[in-house]
Design a protein around this nucleic acid. Structure first.
Lengths: 215, 215
DNA sequence: TGGTTTACCGAACATTCGGTCAGTTGACAA
DNA sequence: TTGTCAACTGACCGAATGTTCGGTAAACCA
């Protein structure tokens, strides 16, 4: 088994003591429990992760976790909300509502990549949810709502004549955001491209194509 | 809970008796156990699926399953091999080795889409493997080998001048096959596009871009 | 008809699961 | 020095897990 370690994603208000991922002299806090738990969820899968696995990654016993969070599913719920809140904050932005459809679409794609990179573990977890519990089903429903929004955008861009009409708009939406979402499968922060570089490359491929331009 | 039913993918040598997915007067066979199990694995996730879940979907008791297959993990191993064998049979084809790099790449992408559609449940399962067991790790290693092959193809196509050189070839590979693989997230056989239509749309977007062509 | 085999059931197995709880520890305030 | 309390431990719970096994009904063959 490859011990991929704890990959403690830096939480908001910490500065020291990396290995045990706890606050100064004190113990854990709900924030670090969440971020480490999500890391393990993404390594082993949510269902494949036991509370014992989480305890080991946190350097405490199982029961200590229950002092900070109500349970395993609540950890999942909070993680999924992190991802979804980011996406919905974006579509609520004015830049997603005004201007030409193609500009709005390009902006939404770019922001999607940015959120995906910024909140990588949370979005990764979201994209693997299958609806096994009420928590997962609620997350899936919110995600479908987001999908409907971007689907509408693509439709507008086609009607606008800014996107080729010889391919089904629904299909274009799925391929386009399938490409965006597939980033979670390989992207690791720090190494390789930045979020902006990524968005540039992605938009460049999907909008202009991989073939060399004659112009 | 959404009862998405059994979606029994048609096995090689059967013709009748769809609902209970068993042979004529006889009972189950390893083939139908596998295809139905993979369906449930994809609905609930491998770790989220219990042998009791499988038994229910098969219409028998838990213990009956063990008469036909050695265990849960063996079901996973056989399913993953179905997907991987298809992919490796393709790269062994002469058309993946001769001709210009761009033609070979286009052929491999098209065939990848075909295999993904033909063996959808198996490929879907493969793409969700995280390496939790020896079985999963072996599958991941075979998959990485396939990835290295296509990565080499993209590199050749760039060197050939058939693909833009202003984007990192490794990044192009990941985006291109990320798009291909994302098809498993939404494609359902029968409804919507055929494998060929899909491949056309995908190649059209990634190679020529979504913007209307001037020519 | 009798015997053998195929395909299955029901009960039980050891283990692991998510979760609970009474108690301990150590830092800090008074 | 003592009392308080946040933070945690270790033992434990019932339920669920993957798997085994003795038994058996029906189909098949002679």
């Amino acid at each position: 088994m490859p011990e991929t370690a704890s990959q403690a994603s830096s939480s908001a208000a910490s500065g020291a003591a990396r290995p045990p991922a706890r606050r100064r002299g004190r113990g854990l806090d709900p924030e670090s429990v969440l971020s480490i738990a999500v890391g393990v969820f993404n390594e082993r899968g949510y269902d494949g992760t036991s509370m014992e696995d989480l305890a080991k990654a946190l350097g405490v016993t199982k029961s200590a976790i229950y002092y900070h969070v109500p349970g395993k599913e609540e950890l999942l719920a909070r993680a999924l909300d992190r991802a979804l809140d980011g996406l919905f904050a974006m579509v609520a932005d004015e830049r997603a509502a005004s201007g030409s459809a193609i500009d709005r679409l390009e902006w939404v794609v770019r922001q999607s990549v940015r959120i995906l990179v910024e909140r990588l573990p949370y979005v990764t977890l979201l994209l693997r949810v299958r609806g096994n519990s009420g928590t997962e089903q609620a997350a899936l429903e919110r995600r479908r709502e987001f999908d409907r929004f971007v689907s509408g955008l693509v439709g507008e861009a086609v009607a606008e004549g800014a996107i080729r009409a010889d391919v089904d708009p629904g299909l274009v939406t799925r391929l386009l955001f399938g490409t965006v979402n597939s980033i979670t499968e390989w992207y690791r922060p720090g190494r390789g491209a930045s979020a902006d570089d990524l968005a540039d490359a992605l938009l460049s491929m999907t909008f202009d194509g991989l073939r060399p331009h004659p112009a």
